[in-house]
């Protein structure tokens, strides 16, 4: 589904990603861990198409298509979703309005008509209930005045409504209390299926207790230096990153 090959990225002449390789197949859940500033958010931002990054080398294919040929919104419509580490506030724009505009834009790209209003209302009510979000959040401005945890749940709500093929969730667990973590995890798990894939960026093994990954990668200095199964996350939790660095230097 996603194939990142030898990706080099610089920001303002500073090298951030240095030859990163990553392959994610349909049906899989991958987790990326790594120290602060390693380039995890950069990777997902580049995949989603954010401006300000210069790709100096490498390719990214999404379902066989060269992603650099696609606009940000085209990538989203093709089924790529980035869950933001820091969700953005949009004053004056209702949450439900953004959801509807996004869903209809994606439907239009698939040649489907606009979703009928009653059907849409039913869908978002259902999904917000799953996220344990009060319906009043739908009428509030996008993320404005939301608590950290509410913003994260809102990201997952968008994901559940949009049903992406590949969801990249950047530190979706940060700022969540224990119950919210379970709610978010069950939301993510409900998306798991043979034709979808999920990429989690996280610092904590705890999330991975709730969402069991197929693969765990360690990203250090703009490169994936070690990959393994879910046991690797436990090991990182216990031992930190130094040993991985030493191992890869050796």
């Amino acid at each position: 589904m996603l194939e990142v090959k030898d990706l080099h990225v610089t920001v303002e002449d500073k090298a951030i990603l240095n030859g990163l390789n990553l392959t994610i197949n349909a049906g899989e859940v991958h987790a990326i861990m790594g120290p602060n500033g390693a380039g995890k958010s950069t990777l997902s931002a580049v995949i989603a198409g954010k401006d300000g990054y210069e790709v100096t080398q490498g390719t990214i294919l999404f379902e066989g298509q060269d992603i650099f040929e696609m606009e940000i919104e085209e990538r989203a419509r093709a089924g790529l979703l980035l869950g933001f580490q820091y969700p953005i506030e949009i004053p004056g724009v209702k949450n439900i309005y953004l959801l509807k505009a996004a869903l209809n834009a994606q439907r239009a790209a698939r040649g489907e008509g606009e979703i009928p209003a009653p059907e849409f209302m039913k869908l978002v009510r259902e999904k917000s209930a799953e996220m344990k979000m009060d319906p009043s959040f739908l009428q509030r401005a996008v993320n404005e005045g939301f608590s950290g945890g509410e913003k994260k749940r809102n990201e997952i709500l968008q994901m559940l409504v949009l049903q992406p093929k590949l969801a990249m969730l950047d530190e979706i667990d940060s700022g969540l209390d224990i119950d919210a973590m379970k709610v978010v995890a069950s939301g993510v798990n409900s998306l798991r299926s043979a034709d979808r894939a999920i990429l989690l960026v996280t610092h904590y093994q705890r999330l991975l207790n709730h969402i069991e990954p197929d693969r765990v990668h360690v990203l250090v200095d703009g490169r994936i230096v070690k990959s393994g199964d879910k046991e690797l996350a436990l090991e990182l939790e216990a031992r930190g990153y130094d040993w991985v660095l030493e191992e890869s230097a050796a």
Binding site: A48, E71, E73, R75, I88, P91, G92, V93, A102, Q158
Partner: peptide, 29 residues
């Protein structure tokens, strides 16, 4: 804000619609 635009576009909304959405939100009061 570039990040507001990016946020909307990353949900599949095209740039022009995103701008008008943000601007209308700005004028809501």
């Amino acid at each position: 804000a570039d990040d507001q635009l990016f946020y909307c576009r990353a949900r599949g909304i095209d740039e022009e619609d995103a701008v008008s959405m943000i601007v209308n939100g700005f004028c809501k009061d």
